[in-house]
């Protein structure tokens, strides 16, 4: 019963967050980095420039996130296994 209450509470808090951001006129679940920069820059008279390589176009950003995420994940996993070998393997050595 307590577990159910916890799950319901978490679901409620996320839903409240989404509704709250919509009510405040913000894009739902927008990133703190992007959602704010342009508005604040405009207020301060500064215009954010486009990135040197603008990957924020359609699914291109998703592709780069996936590419670099996979690459970093592979490197981290490979080196993790090298530094912390499974216990059986360690005994064998």
């Amino acid at each position: 019963m307590n577990r159910l209450k916890t799950v319901l509470f978490i679901m409620f808090s996320f839903a409240a967050g989404g509704l709250f951001s919509l009510a405040m006129g913000k894009e739902k679940w927008s990133g703190v980095d992007e959602a704010v920069l342009e508005k604040f820059a405009e207020e301060a008279g500064r215009v954010p420039l486009e990135p040197v390589f603008n990957t924020d176009q359609g699914d291109l950003l998703l592709f780069f996130f996936f590419l670099f995420g996979s690459l970093a994940g592979f490197i981290a996993g490979y080196l993790f296994r090298e530094l912390f070998p499974p216990k059986k393997e360690k005994k064998g050595k």
Binding site: I10, S13, F14, A16, G17, G18, L19, F20, S21, L22, M24, K26, K28, W29, S30, G31, V32, D33, A35, F65, F68, G69, A72, G73, I75, A76, L79
Partner: peptide
């Protein structure tokens, strides 16, 4: 380095605030 890269570009949804941050 690989872990820091993943962690620092991971958008985590923050309940109640309605935005994601990392």
């Amino acid at each position: 380095g690989a872990a820091a890269f993943i962690i620092s570009c991971l958008p985590v949804p923050v309940p109640f605030a309605g935005v994601t941050s990392h």
